[in-house]
Design a binder for these strands. Structure first.
Length: 271
DNA sequence: ATGGGCACCTGGCTGC
DNA sequence: TGCAGCCAGGTGCCCA
């Protein structure tokens, strides 16, 4: 499900419920997530206080008095805040029970999500250490992207989805950003001019921040922190619009598979 | 260093 | 109605 805007929305949604609370206990019902959840996690977190909630790439980082929890939602995961530990449903894999009596509950049908814990600097964790810049931070600019694209023959869509180049650009927003920038997804990264890199940076920023403002793009099974279905996806120009008229020029939207993922673009608006 | 492909899972939809 | 086949928002890892 979640692309960066959904993760950001989730992090913002749960933060006020977690901040300053003490963890009564963590119950792991299904440890077989993308990586097996460490059984010691439950004991280790007991009684710790939540200092804050952050996002890095699509990871949600929960800072504790000693160490941290790291959650990834994978393709189909969600975190919700519930007023108590009510009856569990299918695919509810872990609960973080708080001293407020509220519970943070993780549900993930496909189990591509993950839960880690650790001490010290969480950004030094192997999953986070090699990540590229955040797309909404100033260091992600035209010069940076231009330098990263030199001598890369990969398709530009593949490149912007590479988290070592820039984090948080998922399959939906990759197609959408390239449409806005007027760049075909199949172009070799190194064929982009500096100006095109600038336009692409701007487009990625615009698409992601707009989606955050709208609470994320809801497709299928996404639910926000309070369980609300979230916003709908009428703002999308090309994603999942194969054969439908381009919203700018009316040409049918094209589709192909790139790196095993669906890609959409307009053959006349994108060069 | 780079690129390509696979793997991990379940569920929903389509078409026979 | 049943069922096989295909597709899905992510991303780490292995191999060439």
């Amino acid at each position: 499900m979640p692309e960066l805007p959904e993760v950001e929305t989730t992090a913002r949604g749960i933060a006020p419920h977690l901040q300053g609370r003490r963890i009564e206990r963590v119950r792991v019902h299904e440890p077989r997530l993308r990586w097996r959840v460490d059984a010691r996690l439950a004991d280790w977190t007991r009684g710790q206080q939540v200092l804050g909630v952050r996002r890095r790439a699509k990871y949600i980082l929960i800072d504790l008095t000693q160490g941290w929890l790291l959650v990834h939602l994978g393709m189909s995961g969600s975190l919700r805040i519930l007023p108590d530990s009510t009856a569990r449903e299918t695919h509810d894999h872990f609960d973080v029970e708080l001293d407020s009596r509220w519970t943070l509950r993780f549900n993930d049908p496909r189990r591509f999500g993950s839960l880690h814990h650790g001490e010290g600097d969480p950004l030094a964790h192997p999953l986070l250490a090699k990540l590229g810049p955040e797309p909404l931070e100033p260091e992600f600019d035209a010069d940076y992207l231009f330098s990263k694209t030199r001598r890369r023959r990969v398709a530009v869509k593949i490149l912007i989805m590479n988290s070592q180049v820039v984090v948080g650009v998922g399959n939906i927003y990759a197609s959408e950003a390239l449409f806005r920038a007027g760049i075909r997804p199949g172009r070799a990264a190194k064929s982009l001019t500096r100006e095109e890199c600038g336009a692409l940076v701007k487009a990625i920023r615009a698409v992601l921040s707009m989606a955050i403002r709208h609470g994320g793009t809801t497709l299928r099974d996404y639910v926000g922190a309070g369980g609300e279905p979230g916003y709908f996806k009428q703002k999308l120009f090309v994603y999942e619009r194969r054969g439908e008229p381009c919203r700018k020029c009316g040409e049918p939207v094209k589709h192909r598979v790139q790196g095993q993922r669906a890609t959409y673009w307009c053959g006349s608006c994108q060069k």
